[in-house]
């Protein structure tokens, strides 16, 4: 119970449920199945990008190029489709593009030792530039119908992509929780020196994180391209910052080693839901950013105060010599 209360996922989920409840009371239409599904559907891109970003943040890094990677992958997807490639190959090309973009980031951070924020800020410019160079700066429209189709598929009234994303989320959650090698992300971010002394491959773990961030951004590109049916030059613009915000909101700490895929997803869902809720509450959508920012700040502030309080408790407990019993009691 105590552990549950301590977890940020719980706090944000609670906040989300409360806000949804409040919005629903104000405007009962909000409770309709369709509106809820719509929110999920709209959040998919950010959820996927945030999941990839999570791996990087877990290892105590940061990647501000994921939005640009998504844009670049979308351009590759659109261009290859319009060249007449089958959907499968085009999607594969997009995912490979995203992954390679991630590998380049990984190479710079782990082997050239460029600080992550500098490396990915540089590639942010490079990937955004490349994406416009490929298309000559114009939007990619008139995509073949077959890329838009999956978006129309559904099961139990829930769109195909929502199922795919949920499946990916479940897979990531399972892997990061249960697979030993995936736990390296946590160990490396938590105590890099300790991980090294106990024999973990620290650099390759970081390498894998940036690569995964690229792959997930590419998957996000496939989803939103299918959803909207064209690729604009502003595709996924600013998503790098939103993905970081989603992670922080969902309890993935920038100091490394803390957070879960579920948290990252809930954070992303929350940021998207704010938009829909504001509309249902009759607040114009332009207030989105202000609310998102204020909530992010409020959450990190509350988190800071809670940690302070816990620290004071710990010190007092130690003075009283009760530390022996603390670990045993659940």
């Amino acid at each position: 119970m105590k552990r549950f209360l301590r977890s940020r996922e719980a706090l944000v989920t609670l906040l989300l449920v409360l806000l949804i409840g409040a919005t629903g009371l104000f405007n009962p239409n909000f409770f309709k199945f369709d509106s809820i599904v719509e929110i999920f559907n709209a959040s998919l891109t950010l959820v996927l990008i945030s999941l990839g970003e999570m791996f990087v943040i877990l290892t105590r890094g940061i990647d501000v190029s994921v939005g640009a990677i998504a844009g670049l992958s979308a351009v590759v997807l659109g261009t290859t489709l319009n060249l007449g490639w089958p959907v499968g190959f085009a999607v594969l090309a997009a995912v490979i593009t995203g992954t390679l973009a991630g590998v380049f980031n990984a190479f710079g951070v782990t082997f050239l030792r460029v600080p992550p924020i500098i490396m990915t800020l540089g590639t942010l410019g490079i990937y955004r530039g490349l994406m416009r160079i490929i298309t000559g700066g114009s939007w990619i429209e008139n995509l073949p119908q077959n890329i838009k189709e999956p978006n129309l598929w559904g099961f139990l009234g829930v769109p195909f992509f929502v199922w795919v994303t949920l499946a990916l989320l479940a897979l990531t959650a399972y892997v990061t929780l249960r697979i030993r090698v995936a736990r390296y992300f946590y160990a490396v971010g938590d105590n890099e020196q300790g991980a090294f002394l106990l024999g973990l491959p620290v650099r390759w773990t970081q390498f894998a994180a940036y690569t995964l961030a690229g792959s997930f951004a590419a998957l996000a590109a496939v989803v939103f391209t299918s959803q909207i049916g064209f690729v604009s030059m502003n595709a996924a613009d600013g998503f790098e910052l939103k993905a970081i915000a989603a992670n922080v909101l969902g309890g993935v700490s920038l100091t490394g080693g803390v957070g879960t895929p579920l948290g990252a997803a809930v954070g992303a869902l929350f940021l998207t839901a704010v938009h829909s809720m504001l509309i249902f509450l009759g607040v114009p959508g332009i207030w989105d950013n202000a609310f998102a920012g204020a909530i992010l700040l409020a959450v990190v502030y509350v988190d800071y105060r809670v940690r302070q309080a816990l620290e004071v408790q710990r010190r007092q407990a130690r003075i009283r010599g009760e530390t022996h019993h603390q670990g045993g009691a659940p």
Binding site: Y186, D190, N191, L198, L200, S253, G257
Partner: peptide, 21 residues
Amino acid sequence: PHVFPHLSVLENLGVGLSYPP
């Protein structure tokens, strides 16, 4: 001691070993 503050005690014990949980 090398502690990973955010890993569970069990995982702290298992770092660098290959036993399943």
